[in-house]
């Protein structure tokens, strides 16, 4: 089947009525696609990602994920089990005292046993080059370390689709290079919001720009 994994149809959204953020936006995310989403500050990129996982509901238009129109909380519960959103601010994502608990939190919610969750957390951390972070206290990590751990918390759930909200922020050269490698090697379908040309070049196969509440033109990359 060649249906897009995620389809946004004619979405409109506003936090307050006078200033619409999204206005008749349509966007498809195909299976295996790595779509880069760019756009100025305040253009509505974060808002778009939150609409996909149902944290906010559109004023009009439809959100279709995995071939089904999603509207109620129950629909989105299922979406969130398979679509991983990494928040723009890692402090929003990390809430457990230790890194291990935070990374294992998602798998536990998916019904894994303690041992499976621990296993998957440890593996994920190792894949991200975060060995030895298991017992670190989350709020005492540096900004960059928090970003990587936040990514780990989502990857540990092995989602089908990854929604990344500026994953490169706060990272140093080395970490950024590693993040680029990691993202480029992931099998998942990815929607990547970023301002960084380098990350975009290496990871995204297509790029769209969000402007005036709608999506402008697709540039395909080799």
């Amino acid at each position: 089947m060649n249906d897009p994994l995620i389809q946004l149809k004619n979405l409109s959204f506003a936090y307050d009525a006078e200033r619409p953020v999204l206005d008749g936006l349509s966007l498809d995310l195909q299976r295996g696609q790595r779509l880069g989403l760019i756009g100025g500050n305040g253009s509505g990129k974060t808002t778009l990602l939150h609409l996909i996982v149902g944290l906010i509901k559109p004023r009009s238009g439809r959100v279709v994920v995995f071939g089904q129109t999603r509207s109620g909380e129950r629909d989105f519960k299922e979406v969130r089990r398979r679509v991983g959103l990494v928040f723009q601010d890692a402090d929003d994502q990390l809430f457990c005292p230790t890194v291990l608990e935070d990374v294992a939190f998602g798998p536990r919610n998916l019904g894994c046993s303690i041992e499976e969750a621990r296993e998957s957390a440890v593996t994920t951390l190792r894949n991200l080059g975060l060995e030895g972070f298991e017992n670190r206290v989350t709020y005492r990590l540096s900004g960059g370390e928090k970003r990587l751990v936040a990514l780990a918390t989502v990857l540990a759930m092995k989602p089908d689709v990854l929604l990344l909200d500026e994953p490169g922020g706060n990272l140093d050269e080395t970490s950024r290079a590693r993040l680029t490698e990691i993202l480029a090697s992931l099998p998942q379908t990815i929607l990547l919001v970023t301002h960084e040309p380098e990350l975009l070049n290496r990871v995204a196969t297509d790029v769209v720009r969000l402007e005036n509440g709608a999506v402008k033109g697709t540039t395909s990359r080799p």
Binding site: V53, L55, D92, F105, N109
Partner: peptide, 24 residues
């Protein structure tokens, strides 16, 4: 604000009121 966003992030990871402790 932060508490709302943290709750949102928790929901995104499948939290619906059951807190699992990593300890038997």
């Amino acid at each position: 604000d932060r508490s709302n966003r943290v709750l949102a992030a928790m929901k995104c990871r499948g939290f619906y009121g059951r807190y699992h402790v990593m300890q038997t």
